[in-house]
Nucleic acid binder design. Structure first.
Lengths: 341, 341
DNA sequence: CCATTAGTTTAAAACGATCTAATTGTTGAC
DNA sequence: GTCAACAATTAGATCGTTTTAAACTAATGG
């Protein structure tokens, strides 16, 4: 029933250590020996015992995913992508939802890593943007990969997967401009999230390129929530000079704006165009469906995990150029935006 | 830095095995010895090494959660509740999203359990309703807990957490009846999910109690999806005799019905009342917000895990009466339902 | 007061891998 | 042909627990 490394060794006529070498693709094993061992492994259907490996090597074959994101869709997509990569590499995923604003969050993360002896960690906003967490992880020598907003790879961001929110926001804003809108408002997310800043910058750049002066009243601070969208849109539509289009920092805010417009009897998109960001499943189900930018979260998560494994696995071919993947969310035009007639 | 069980033993002046006994609260340790050991553990801040424990006892301290649920909110809530319980008991959670319709799903589950040496498993629909999975798990002797639809505890459902969808659906239907509606339609979820059947039964019971004959055309088969809601509501409103209210099997279907009503220019709730089920976050954000039934998923998950641990832990006090928890989702009235004027 | 028994405690053997250090093979240079 | 240098292999120690089986106590009964 239970096949141990010992059985494999005997079956292949080599020592235990040699089998171990093959399992961890360590060097110093002749090609034909490798084949012999592989054959024995296949024949006996040998599956290494994770616990024994962990104990002996004092490292676990699992990576952690820490999150504090109210957006369930995002988290599920991330998990999916990470798990895909984990299965491929024979790792396991430890999920750890927590409160990013907790005062001893750094200690909590360190405890988690040390207690579970994690091989690595994947960080998404807001954790990926907390310098003290990155510093602490570096100090205790744990590999980690961050998924963050950014457009240009740089050596300082060596272990990052970048999402080019700037360019995507530029494209969305441009789409609104091309429809004839010039009075375009922007509903911000949390200031702490750099994605909000990047998207704002993209919006501003697009306006600037057309020579449109930014109206400071059109930029409304807020948070990544439905309620914030309701409030923000209400505030905008009470201005003497109203915008004809709203670019919301994410779909939830956009949904809130939609809700608010309905309360005020404003026709979408005839009187007001609204665009979101993220392509959440519900962005297709609002009325009218939201124009948005699609972020391939599952793929992003996969790449992040792959990047992590490249650092984590001791004997993987590290000479692969360690380029930083950059994802540009793509524009999805739906009914919530139309020309400014 | 690293404190082993050996250190504790020496510090307390007892043998390693005695410390082990205390750690796993096994019998045959005198009270004062226990105290002595506990003191040493606290003083040295001893934390047992999970890998070594797993290896030696050939069981892991983690439970699995298998799911195939397109509803991200539900899954996240479940994870949250399960993790809460796991942390409390020093266990870890292994998540395993998969495809319930895969032909070799049983083998996949068994492989997962055996490979990860899981201490137990939590099953939600549709897995909790697949008899061959339960049978297979029983055969290999793995503890598991199912979360299923049902109102009456029975010995056959010994390791279950019940959700009384029947009563909740009865209450929602009753709410619609009290508003004066008599022509109430029902949009079903997947037939395979017993929750859909239970809710339908609750709906029918409520009508029957008022002596209202069920109109078979008002019961529309479908699935737990937005699209199904769109189609179902469209079909209903094309009938010569239209319903004045729709009870959708979950919020997604209800959102679809809402969407469809908008397409057909039907005023909600004036011309048509719509109710959902589940209290998904977005049920508050539709226009108008949805009347629904609230399911405390986090709590349900916690209880499920607690139930599992009661069976799993070898030396826990098992004499606690093993009652089956029953949750009744509660009615939440919002703007999508109003009186039939 | 010894024999019996049940209750505690212990030293040492697993558990199934990795890692260390010593051994054996092979190659190329002089 | 010998030796150095390096590659390939191995036996055995090791990781930190649990488990086994034996040894030691303390209480009970005849």
């Amino acid at each position: 029933m239970k096949v141990t490394i010992n059985d494999v060794a005997r079956h292949a006529g080599v020592s235990i250590k040699t089998v171990s070498r093959v399992m961890n693709n360590e060097p110093s094993v002749r090609k034909d020996t490798v084949d012999k061992v592989q054959a024995a492994i296949n024949e006996l259907q040998y599956q290494p015992n994770a616990a024994a490996r962990n104990l002996a090597s004092s490292r676990s074959f699992s990576i952690g995913y820490i999150y504090d994101n109210p957006n369930a869709y995002y988290v599920i997509d991330m998990q999916r992508g990470l798990l895909d990569a984990c299965r491929k590499h024979g790792y396991e995923l430890l999920i750890h939802p927590t409160n990013a604003k907790s005062p001893d969050i750094v200690q909590e993360v360190i405890d988690l890593v040390q207690h579970s002896r994690l091989a690595g960690l994947v960080l998404t906003p807001p954790f990926s943007e907390m310098p003290h967490i990155a510093a602490a992880l570096e100090k205790i020598g744990v590999h980690f990969v961050r998924i963050i907003s950014g457009s240009t790879p740089s050596p300082k961001l060596s272990n990052c997967v970048l999402i080019d929110d700037f360019t995507a926001a530029f494209k969305i804003t441009n789409h609104l401009l091309e429809l004839g809108h010039t009075d375009i408002a922007f509903l911000c997310g949390e200031e702490e999230h750099s994605s909000s800043g990047e998207r704002l910058a993209g919006y501003q750049a697009a306006l600037a390129k057309r020579g449109i002066a930014a109206n400071p009243k059109f930029i409304v601070p807020g948070s990544y929530s439905f309620e914030s969208g309701v409030k923000g849109a209400t505030k905008l539509m009470e201005l003497s000079k109203k915008p004809t289009a709203i670019f919301a920092c994410n779909d939830e805010i956009a949904a809130g704006a939609l809700f608010s417009a309905r309360l005020m009897n404003i026709a979408i998109p005839q009187q007001l165009a609204i665009a979101g960001f993220e392509n959440s499943p519900f962005s297709r189900q609002t009325w009218p469906p939201l124009t948005t930018a699609h972020q391939p979260n599952v793929t992003i998560a996969q790449q992040a995990a792959e990047l992590l494994f490249r650092h984590t696995k001791p004997n993987a071919s590290k000479n692969l150029t360690d380029k930083q993947p950059v994802f540009i969310p793509e524009l999805l035009v739906r009914e919530s935006t139309a020309s400014n007639s």
